[in-house]
């Protein structure tokens, strides 16, 4: 999963940073009285900054194109699911949802085909996070009143998917969930 590699990457970075700091600290503890410290610190700082900027520049240019806003933008979705979030439940329907009397259906989605969710909220801000059968987030968007967010995704594994609310919406926030089937 993507999350595991993120955690691993973070741990590696954190450990590296810690090692550097511990090493610097030990060098201070062990140092003799009246040592001059680092020579040419100014030049080194410059290179340090430059390298960091370049590394982050590369990082940004690699990650930015992977942004989700235009995922599957070129494709025509096989199915459109309308989503209305309301304290504290989700309504999923293949037809558009009447805000005055929202109702939902049991949803079954096709495998390996692009599906579009049109997500909105009928009251406050909600989240719309899709969890795979192993309960890991695969994609998400926010449900904002007054706006419709279009979230496209291609499910590649069959099973029961959970939808959880990821924006605090009131005391019922943790029970706000629904499921759908992919097969």
């Amino acid at each position: 999963m993507k999350q595991d590699s993120i955690l691993l990457f973070f741990c590696l970075l954190a450990i590296t940073a810690t090692i550097v700091f511990v090493w610097v600290f030990r060098s201070s503890i062990k140092a003799e009285e009246r040592t001059p410290g680092i020579k040419n610190a100014l030049q080194k700082r410059f290179w340090f900054l430059l390298i960091l900027v370049v590394v982050f520049g590369i990082f940004a240019s690699v990650t930015l194109p992977k942004s989700p806003y235009f995922a599957f933008a070129e494709e025509v979705p096989a199915k459109v699911i309308h989503v209305a979030a309301l304290q504290f439940s989700f309504f999923l329907s293949e037809k558009s949802i009447d805000p005055k009397s929202p109702s939902g259906d049991n949803i079954e989605l096709p495998l390996n085909k692009v599906v579009e969710f049109r997500v909105t909220s009928l009251d406050v801000n909600h989240g719309f996070a899709i969890y795979n059968p192993q309960m890991r987030i695969v994609t998400q968007t926010q449900a904002m009143p007054g706006y419709i967010n279009r979230l496209r995704y291609k499910f590649t594994k069959p099973g029961i998917y959970h939808v959880l609310c990821l924006e605090y919406c009131g005391v019922g926030h943790p029970v706000m969930q629904t499921t759908f089937i992919v097969k």
Binding site: S28, A31, T35, G37, I38, K44
Partner: peptide
């Protein structure tokens, strides 16, 4: 970097 320069190889009062 400022803090590293201030500490590295320098005996300071901790």
């Amino acid at each position: 970097f400022s803090i590293i320069v201030a500490i590295y190889g320098v005996r300071i009062q901790w």
